[in-house]
Design a protein around this nucleic acid. Sequence first.
DNA 1: GACCTGCTGCGGCCTG
Length: 748
Amino acid sequence: MTTSSPRSGSEPPAAEPSRAYALYHPAVQRWIYNRGWDRLRDAQERAAELIITGERDVIIASATASGKTEAALLPICSVLARQHELNAAAGVAALYVSPLKALINDQYDRIVDLTEPLGLRVHRWHGDAPAAGKARVLRAPSGLLLITPESLEALFVRHADRVRRVFGGLRYAVIDELHSFVGTERGAQLQALLHRVELAAGRRVPRVALSATLGDFAGAAEFLRPRHGPEVAVVASTEPGGEIRLQIRGYVDPAAPAPPGQEPADRGAIADHLFRTLRGTDNLVFANSRAAVEVYADMLAQRAVRAGVPAGFLAHHGSLSKEVREHVEERLKDPTTPVTAVCTSTLELGIDVGSVDSVAQVGAPPTVAGLRQRLGRSGRRPGRPAVLRVYVAEPELAPGLSPTDALRAELFQSVAMIELLTASWYEPPDTTGLHLSTLVQQVLSTTAQHGGATARQLFDSLCASGPFHRVDQATFAALLRDLGRHDLLQQQADGVLLPGREGERLISHYSFYASFRTSLDYRLVADGYTLGSLPVDRPILPGTFLIFSGARWRVISVDTAQRVIELTAAEAGRPPVFPGTGGEVADEVRRAMRRLYRSSETPGYLDATARTLLAEGRAAFHAYGHATHRVFSRGPETVLFPWRGDRIMNTLAVVLAGHGLHIGQDGLAITAGNCSPAQLLDVVRKLAAEPAPDPVALAATVRAKAHDKYDRYLSEDLLNLAYAARALDVPGAWTSLAELASLPSPAG
DNA sequence: GACCTGCTGCGGCCTG
């Protein structure tokens, strides 16, 4: 924000002449004047007219802290204020959908400040919001409604009779943090809900979406308005970003394991540097996993104790209780108490923790887009650069080190991602999914909302005119039959479909509203205080030592009926094991890694050890013949290096496994356990010469395909369709096979 | 060896 000190009084606006400013309502202009803004930001300037005319949907893509929310809300509130003066319409006038409750709470205070002088009401509706506010929306809908997708779903199911009244006068729908929805089940749910809102309103309602990290505007536009992506206006700010200072620090993990009870040398050295560099200031340390967060929070806390300084390092992740997390967030917001939060992606977006002094990333970042979001948490104050330190540990070069480890892949992935980040490349959204699990949810929800519906009505509203347009009639009919078979739906004599017994049971429980699945957890309690939770599939015995919330504990008791684990403070501990599957490495990242191996340039942001590791990785790349070969013999196994993204790697693994090979996947490589390099290359050449198979037929060779919340109600045929769309890239795999087949015969 | 997100209605108890 470009601000000087706020002014008082209500003299004529003094901002620079600006087309957008002139379009704003006088009360909005006064608000801008009172904030002391010298000028409007680029995105604000360019979005105003598009939004005010309301003819097109708009995506506002600009950096974190560049005034995106205001770029959407100042013109929207201008329109609503004029409408309010005419007393024109009842009902909610603008809907704002957010992926996070915390984001709604943050935005609520800012938005009230803007809307109060305009006479517009703001309502927030999410699971932790007061019930009185929700009752007010249902009784006298008006102004702006800030809501989560799940609460919007609940509104449709529980208050179906009020939906038309609430949304009948809707003028705008705003979607914050659009990138967090694109390509996900939750995103498909949001698309369906927005469509159902428009059906209730009886007309198209302009959509305004906000994001700082969209990899592909066309894909995002298609997500925002399915089948009409090209008509969406994209306001991509050209305002230059702030200065970024970055460093990659390399560490060596010794071949000899640390003695029991001692920290591994590489992690200890990373913790030493974090402690020295970060203490006394506000920082975020992203550690990629909850277990790693606990390890580093504990190591840093131990260092604070040994140095006799106040504890300034706290853990923050999704299994910690709301109270523990809020305490950390308060400390981050409070400028008088410096704190470094060691966290997973929980602090990656949304929650306004103010500006931190620096961001650390321990281990290769999971995605380029995520790295950009993380980096955007620092450097938010004028004149202060964003600071990023990436810590990468690679195993010591020693006899017996595997050829793959010698490639220093984690370092190369980190460098490749930073190079892509500085070129403003982000992972493109995956908009090919069928999202059948969420279609099951939406069929049930729509049926409940209308008290029954025909198959035709459901298909028309959800698929033909709705967001599930990749689902054809035959597939939809098969899905309805599956739901009938499981008693989720039943059909009356006149053909109308109603929820069946099992359907009623699902719909009537509050767990129905979320499109994603969560596990049952044990609650961890110490002295009556809930620290957080642990997944139930990892039984823990009394007497076990545990590291949790950055502190050390011993388990006193385990109550399996109440699912409560009681803890007491202890001297020793070990991090708990969390289950989970990670994300996909994009194809472009793997290609960038290969380019980096073949290059001889050394980026200036590497420290001495990282430079050495980079040189070692390149030496290994050439020594093992990676520049010219992709197939290698390693003991009894054959190893294949396609240098492609995880989806293509998965497709290749499925294809090869279908040819009787014992296939394993190991990040960069595919291993075949029972064949020689020559045999593997024979199979590759034979496959490359064949036409690419049907993805659905290929999916049929894969076991255990149920993945999402309502997949368990789908037949094998539908799971094959969903898997083919979600996990396979057959054309990509066949270009990879063609490339592999054209290479010379295997190297030793 | 890998993340995160979200949720209603109602009964029971306490306070002013």
